[in-house]
Amino acid sequence: MMTVPQTSASLRRPARIAINAGLVIFIALYAAIGFLQPNYLEPGLFMNFLRRAAPLVILACGQLYVILTGGFDLSMGAVATLVVLAASILINGDPDTTWAVIGALYVMGVSIGLVNGFVVAFLKVPSIITTLGTMLLVNGLALAWSGGAARGDLPDNFRNLGRLVWRDVSVIGTLPLAAVVLAGFVALAWFGLNGTVYGKRALAVGDNPRAAELAGTPVAATRILAFVVSAVSAVTAGILLGGFSGVSVNAGEGLELQAIAACVIGGAQLLGGRGSVWSAVFGALSLFALFTLLNLLGLPQALRDSIQGVILIAAVGASMWRTRRRN
């Protein structure tokens, strides 16, 4: 398995290391889940775990593109909310319009990504502020449009994307459609970074934009594209969320920070220069496994936040420590 070059300065590291950070944490956490509740080791429940984790994993993949180029996207949770509300208003229970509306949602997502990208690249507003602004703006638009509460209805063919589970599949038993969407999205995200020239450009831009520019990298285009990918991932996640549990005005709340945390737990470096799709995927799976584990432990809800905070700092601290030791 190939990974992208780590930083422009350092040597190409073996893929093993890029995978390790998130994968190790994920396996440890999932083992703990399996220890507490052995039936989570059955393929059926693992598939169900993937179905529920899918939106977060997809968001993390999109967020990773922006993080690689040195930025943040705080607007993705709001975009996911907008998608859920817009889908239900536009489709309004009519299954024939589902695919057309999904197309429209992607157009909407791409436009939001373009706006984010242009503001950051040309107006020079730091991405954390830009996307904070679009977060407020998109959330406000979604609420104003729907009147502040869920409206309309989602037909079954839309809901299926996040909800349908095929039963009696050979070997794995059950297969949720969301897991297929997840695999497809991750494959595309991986290809984008590893199969095209884009991955190298993104890393170069994140590592040192000035140097990348002098080396002929189109810095602005690279940035803008990252925000577009991020917004597209938010649309995809929104569709799965709406499918999984239906319409609500807080469908995407807080997901942006979870996506950032996922990437970082998986070993991506904030402000750019290091990370791979696997950091996003396994980081997100780890985070979701952590949520599940804390649910199973039956701790008071509030303390789960605290534990999440400790793990976040510890994971990043550990990866810092490893990096330092290696250098």
């Binding site: 402000l271 605290s306 999440q308 905070g309 976040l312 700092i313």
Partner: peptide
């Protein structure tokens, strides 16, 4: 610790909020 301030303060914020 050399840890990114966003992560540190997001983490400590979560810890305080939870407790």
């Amino acid at each position: 610790g050399g840890i990114n301030p966003l992560i540190v303060t997001l983490g400590t914020g979560l810890i305080i909020q939870g407790v």
